[in-house]
């Protein structure tokens, strides 16, 4: 995300911000779909033996505009965040928040059940839960 501050006295905060940005950039693991860091919405993915959990950080989005699709093992999150209209004679001092259409794509593991996908939007986070198939569950084999 490109941060730009128009406060002239904010040089140190700007340096701090840059440092944090760099730190965050190096903390993440590389993805096959290229530079995923910095996109909107930011996505965290977690997995358990029973499901794959996806968290898309998309605050201020009308839930009706969100589109979640699973096709051929690829999950797509798309939507739009509309920019608020600027009031009359107003000045934008800092403009960092994302506005516009967005789309992010995540490859799912092979063992998921695309029919059981659940999506919830709460506190600005879209939580998508993708269950793994029953026959892919780890099983304990009884020894005769």
């Amino acid at each position: 995300m490109a941060y730009q501050s128009l406060f002239p006295r904010d040089v140190f905060a700007e340096l701090d911000r840059l440092q944090r940005g760099l730190q965050q950039a190096f903390d993440i693991s590389p993805s096959i779909r290229g530079l995923s860091w910095g996109g909107f919405p930011a996505i965290n993915v977690g997995s358990t033996p029973r499901s794959v959990e996806l968290y898309a950080f998309a605050p201020g989005v009308d839930p009706a505009s969100l589109d979640v699709q699973v096709e051929k093992g690829v999950l797509t999150v798309a939507g739009e965040r509309k920019a608020d209209a600027l009031p009359d004679k107003a000045t934008m001092h800092v403009d960092e928040r994302f506005a516009g259409r967005f789309r992010r794509v995540v490859t799912l593991p092979d063992d998921v059940d695309a029919n059981g996908v659940e999506a919830r939007y709460r506190d600005g986070v879209l939580h998508i839960s993708v269950p793994r198939r029953e026959d892919a569950q780890p099983r304990r084999i009884a020894i005769q």
Partner: peptide
Amino acid sequence: LLPPTDVIEDAGGITLLADLPGV
């Protein structure tokens, strides 16, 4: 984390918008 922020000033004051998803 540093939340992305918009700061808008008009004649009556300042409006600050900050993204804090998950809070």
